[in-house]
Design a protein around this nucleic acid. Structure first.
Lengths: 180, 180
DNA sequence: TCCTCCTATGCAACGAGTTTCATAGGCAAC
DNA sequence: GTTGCCTATGAAACTCGTTGCATAGGAGGA
């Protein structure tokens, strides 16, 4: 229900084509909202028809033409209205937690390699976040409001990864204890 | 894709009817997997047809009859196979993070009440988790493997809430700074 | 008595999201 | 020189999840 809004935010930060948006959703925006190019193209067409965004054809050489979208006045007011609505509760889908409880009815040791793999990928993500933080928000710099808000969201991602790594260590210790 | 597996785990922990499962998904299981009664009834019928679970009609007095499901042999092997498959990446949907970045193009102060509301609901959830932890896992008790795994999942929930509350305080400080 | 809530299960319609496939030119490697 | 990858957009089919509605008996309160 809010892919439209995530796209509006991304286009306000920087106008772009469907393809470019799809890549952003694979990277920075994808930290808190995922979408495939199929979804993005479909929603872009609807948003353009509704007058939330406006497209401009851009010819490129050596590459296919692209349609660059920018947020229109109606889109800004839609976003403003949405900002003032209460956030609806997120639907939780924590597959690893289900597996951990499932391990009680199977061999707990079977999960160790999978949990270790998760721990490594979260550690790698934490490293990338911290590198990005030092690059984009070095200490002692004046940040404009947009950057301050981006930074506080990134800090949330960093704290989430830290907490998750510590918890996965706890999970691993428990699995090892049960495997003896 | 894994509602089936969450149901199998819940039925292994305790057999029950569709209605009872729906209530569990509103409570404990709902911490890491949500589902409505519609989804549950539909999936239960498919799982019974596939021989993963077996139903037994139970007549009750003063209440409608119910169908109590238990995991069949095929269901156990399905769960065992699934446990050994890699966890597929979760799709992230963090609406509040989108709104925080959206606030850069609107009035940051408009978000303060909403973030405060979130902080309070996370604090209340943390309290419930900690009460449940003291009740179900008092220190100095011998826990069987199933309880140890339930406990480590609950510890994850507690740490998640703690981290989230600290981050929301950070968000609130940032929003207040920008509102001056 | 009527109203509402709880237990218990289900149908039908819709909307959101995923998967697979298609097109089409340019670039680089082998 | 063909194979594979990147940019760029899209159709079609399908699955998953949500919402609204229906049924039906019993309990409890105003």
């Amino acid at each position: 229900m809010a892919l439209e809004h995530a796209i509006l935010v991304s286009l306000l930060e920087q106008p772009g084509s469907g393809y470019e948006l799809a890549r952003r959703f694979d990277r920075s925006i994808g930290r808190f909202w995922t979408a495939t190019h199929q979804q993005i193209y479909r929603v872009l067409r609807r948003m353009e028809a509704d007058g939330w965004i406006a497209a401009q054809e851009v010819a490129q050489d050596g590459r296919p033409d692209k349609k660059v979208y920018a947020v229109a006045r109606d889109g800004r007011s839609v976003l403003s209205d949405w900002l003032r609505e209460p956030v609806e509760p997120e639907t939780v889908r924590h597959e690893l937690a289900v597996k951990i409880r499932a391990a009680a009815f199977d061999d707990p040791a079977a999960l160790i390699s999978e949990v270790t793999r998760h721990r490594e990928s979260h550690a790698a993500l934490l490293e990338r976040y911290r590198t990005g933080e030092q690059r984009d928000f070095p200490p002692g710099t004046e940040l404009d409001p947009q950057q301050q808000l981006q930074h506080v969201v990134l800090r949330g991602g960093i704290e989430y990864e830290r907490m998750t790594i510590a918890w996965l260590d706890d999970v691993l210790a428990t699995l090892h204890r049960l495997s003896r």
